[in-house]
């Protein structure tokens, strides 16, 4: 027989080859380990929910939900303790709302500019710079807001306090800008070239084409970008903790300072917080509210983005 012919048990020999056996075993074991790594992310989420809910449970056993949602004072460590989340919530939404008021027009203009107007070379240089902006530590932004922009803004805006919601809101708007631009520019660039060509063939200008073709076609992707950006602003901590003050304050005036949910958690964590006390459980109740808000926006953003990706 020729040298390449199969011995009767060649396949069996391969199957029983100890080296190959070890390799197969390693492959299976690694698959399990990799699965465990991936499953860990689910465990993290589960642990987050469990921690927040179980600690909040202790809180809500002593504070009725109705009082939590309707009381207009948040004074957990005073002798006359009140546990109304409204002051923290309004401050949070004020700051995040101001951030969005800044980031929406700037973000839209920048992403249209980068995706439709800028030459590829310019885009390739600008994107890393925007990424650099995203990399600046938030505590540095906080310093900038409190010690540079606030004194500056006080010269122009009468009645602006040293701690206020306006300036940190503005700074957060700039901070989330790179994040928003990167997602919405991706969405715009994903719009098929054929749609653009169709619009140009009708004789549209670049600007008209962006408004009538790109924005509607990329709408769900762009909306997702802004929802995700909003969730970021809501959860942002250091800028507001530094520049918006740590005093719970139910106010309709963003020139005043007011503690957000995140700033409250920071403030309490800095102090001596006895484990198991009601004060300790307040930060988890506040955290639960924060988690639910950001979760809602993230989930909507996720599905809008997914729908957009499936469309193209």
């Amino acid at each position: 027989m020729a040298e390449t012919s199969i011995k009767a048990s060649e396949y069996e020999a391969l199957r029983n080859n100890p080296y190959l056996r070890r390799g197969r075993l390693l492959s299976v074991v690694m698959r399990g380990i990799l699965f465990a790594c991936a499953a860990l992310s689910v465990a993290i989420t589960a642990a987050i929910i469990w921690v927040l809910v179980s600690e909040s449970w202790i809180f809500f056993k002593q504070v009725p939900l109705l009082a939590f949602l309707t009381d207009t004072h948040w004074t957990p460590v005073f002798t006359d303790a009140h546990y109304g989340i409204l002051p923290l919530l309004t401050a949070t939404f004020w700051a995040a709302g101001i951030a969005m008021a800044v980031a929406t027009p700037l973000g839209l203009a920048l992403s249209i500019y980068l995706s439709e107007f800028a030459r590829p070379n310019l885009r390739e240089t600008l994107k890393p710079i925007l990424e650099m902006l995203a990399a600046v530590p938030t505590v540095v932004f906080g310093y900038f807001a409190l010690l540079f922009l606030t004194p500056l803004a006080r010269q122009f805006i009468p009645g602006l306090s040293g701690f206020n919601l306006l300036v940190p809101g503005f700074v957060m708007g700039i901070m989330i800008l790179p994040y928003i631009v990167s997602i919405s520019e991706d969405a715009m660039r994903a719009v098929p070239m054929s749609l653009r060509e169709g619009a140009f063939a009708l004789g549209m200008s670049r600007w008209r084409m962006s408004m009538t073709v790109i924005i509607p076609a990329a709408f769900s992707g762009v909306t997702a970008a802004f929802l995700l950006g909003f969730a970021r602003a809501v959860g942002e901590t250091m800028v507001v903790a530094i520049a918006a003050g740590q005093n719970p304050n139910l106010t309709a005036d963003p020139r005043e300072g007011a503690a957000t949910i995140t700033a409250y958690i920071v403030q309490m964590s800095l102090g001596d917080l006895p484990h198991g006390s009601l004060a300790y459980s307040t930060i988890f109740a506040a955290g639960l509210v924060l988690f639910l808000i950001t979760l809602a926006f993230n989930v909507i953003g996720f599905f809008l983005r997914k729908r957009f990706r499936e469309a193209y």
Binding site: E55, G235, E236, T237, I265, G287
Partner: peptide, 18 residues
């Protein structure tokens, strides 16, 4: 993708509690 959107301070609460 949701974990990427969870505010960092929530991770702090997770670590504090657990």
């Amino acid at each position: 993708s949701n974990l990427a959107g969870v505010p960092s301070i929530i991770y702090g609460l997770l670590a504090l509690g657990i």
